Amino acid sequence: MRRRGPALEPLLLSDEERATLTWWARRASSAQALALRARIVLACDGPDVPSIVGVARELGITADTVRKWRRRFLAERLDGLVDEPRPGRPPTIAVDEIEAVVVATLEEIPKNATHWSRSSMAARSGLSKSTVGRIWRKFQLKPHLVGTFKLSTDPLFIEKVHDVIGLYFDPPEGAVVLSVDEKSQIQALDRSQPVLPMMPGMPERRTHDYVRNGLTTLFAAFDTSSGKVITSLHRRHRAAEFKKFLVKIDREVPDGLDIHLICDNYGTHKTPAIRAWLAQHPRFHMHFTPTGSSWINQVERWFGFLTDQMIRRGAHKNVQALERDIRAWIKNWNEDPKPFTWTKTANEILDSLARFCRRISGAGH
């Protein structure tokens, strides 16, 4: 029989506390850390005393995290969630001042600038630049950074997501699933002067300028179950080259196996010549990703490995040297292939995108 620990003290919220925590948890502009702490306390609310492990499982965090913020709230109530106590001299900044900086960073734009700097926020708040910097680090706010995104406008977005993700999680029997795409315009670049090798205390150094020595295109079909890759290099990027690549796939995949290809919506994949060839090869089945959604195609991640490990820092005096190095890298990959583990279900992806859209002003419904 398992030994039970000491009984937990009930965490009971007042109406005002519950309203504040709900606002912190749901407000789109809340700092992630503060929103999570609010959700922890809300999940622990009630006379029935929910279990620590149950709350941790519900929120997808560790039991220690739940235990820490539950205990902090019982000791200090709402103030305990905003700022952790530090050893040494007591803090001289009021909680209201910290919240004002966080809210202004998330919800306001400074005059004559597109984003806050430590100097502009210090001038607005009356705090020092170093204090502003500490608050931003505490709540993981980085006004100087910006990311990019693009939402698909494909009218069949939901259907295509379910189709592609279904192939990842439940591939058909007696078939191979290949994630296919082209990495076009790979440049054979050579530096204008020799690269200086890395030395102790000094990184590898190279000139900022380079010489272009031609282009090549890599066609790749990534086997989602084994990680092996079928590839072909061509100097041009047309439907004719894609058809040649399909012929190579047909030749290399054992007879008796159906072939499910996951492709993007590039025009060369849908020409009359390609459709005619596919009609003559019924074991091929095409599955198209939603427009603007290359992230769903696993071969794109494989292209990232190739770029980081070989292309980006490579130096090639001609296209032949570039293609030779690409073939050697692919040969080495296929000697020890590594499939990718896809973890997000179609419903999880769609739910995540729905939450993201609700945060975007003017995104619609």
Score class of each variant (00 low, 15 high):
residue 2 R to W: 15
residue 4 R to K: 11
residue 7 A to L: 10
residue 7 A to I: 08
residue 8 L to M: 15
residue 10 P to E: 04
residue 10 P to K: 06
residue 12 L to D: 12
residue 14 S to F: 07
residue 14 S to C: 03
residue 14 S to D: 04
residue 16 E to F: 03
residue 18 R to N: 14
residue 18 R to I: 06
residue 24 W to A: 00
residue 30 S to N: 04
residue 31 A to Y: 02
residue 32 Q to R: 13
residue 34 L to R: 12
residue 35 A to G: 05
residue 35 A to H: 01
residue 36 L to A: 04
residue 44 C to P: 09
residue 46 G to M: 01
residue 49 V to C: 13
residue 52 I to H: 14
residue 57 R to Q: 13
residue 59 L to K: 02
residue 65 T to E: 13
residue 70 R to Q: 09
residue 74 L to Y: 04
residue 76 E to T: 02
residue 76 E to P: 08
residue 92 T to M: 02
residue 93 I to Y: 07
residue 94 A to S: 14
residue 95 V to E: 12
residue 96 D to V: 10
residue 98 I to D: 15
residue 101 V to D: 04
residue 101 V to E: 05
residue 102 V to G: 08
residue 111 K to G: 05
residue 113 A to W: 04
residue 114 T to Y: 12
residue 115 H to W: 13
residue 120 S to E: 08
residue 120 S to R: 12
residue 121 M to A: 06
residue 124 R to M: 03
residue 126 G to F: 01
residue 132 V to W: 03
residue 134 R to L: 05
residue 139 F to A: 00
residue 147 G to Q: 10
residue 147 G to S: 14
residue 149 F to Y: 15
residue 149 F to V: 10
residue 149 F to N: 14
residue 151 L to K: 08
residue 156 L to D: 15
residue 163 D to Y: 08
residue 164 V to D: 10
residue 173 E to W: 09
residue 174 G to N: 12
residue 175 A to R: 11
residue 182 E to F: 00
residue 184 S to M: 01
residue 185 Q to C: 10
residue 186 I to M: 02
residue 187 Q to D: 01
residue 188 A to K: 07
residue 189 L to R: 09
residue 190 D to F: 12
residue 190 D to R: 14
residue 193 Q to E: 14
residue 194 P to K: 11
residue 194 P to F: 07
residue 198 M to E: 10
residue 201 G to P: 03
residue 204 E to Y: 00
residue 205 R to Y: 02
residue 209 D to P: 10
residue 209 D to F: 08
residue 213 N to R: 11
residue 214 G to S: 02
residue 224 T to N: 05
residue 226 S to A: 11
residue 230 I to K: 00
residue 234 H to E: 12
residue 235 R to Y: 01
residue 237 H to E: 14
residue 238 R to Y: 01
residue 239 A to H: 01
residue 242 F to I: 00
residue 244 K to R: 14
residue 244 K to G: 09
residue 244 K to Q: 14
residue 245 F to Y: 03
residue 248 K to C: 05
residue 248 K to Y: 13
residue 251 R to T: 13
residue 254 P to E: 12
residue 256 G to E: 01
residue 257 L to C: 08
residue 257 L to A: 12
residue 258 D to S: 10
residue 258 D to G: 05
residue 258 D to R: 05
residue 267 G to C: 07
residue 268 T to C: 06
residue 271 T to Q: 05
residue 272 P to H: 11
residue 273 A to K: 12
residue 275 R to T: 07
residue 277 W to Y: 11
residue 281 H to S: 04
residue 283 R to N: 00
residue 286 M to N: 05
residue 288 F to C: 13
residue 288 F to K: 07
residue 291 T to W: 03
residue 300 E to V: 06
residue 302 W to I: 04
residue 304 G to A: 06
residue 304 G to L: 03
residue 305 F to C: 08
residue 306 L to N: 11
residue 311 I to L: 07
residue 322 L to H: 00
residue 327 R to W: 07
residue 334 N to I: 04
residue 334 N to Y: 00
residue 335 E to N: 14
residue 344 K to H: 06
residue 345 T to L: 03
residue 347 N to Y: 09
residue 350 L to E: 10
residue 351 D to N: 15
residue 355 R to C: 08
residue 355 R to P: 10
residue 365 H to N: 14
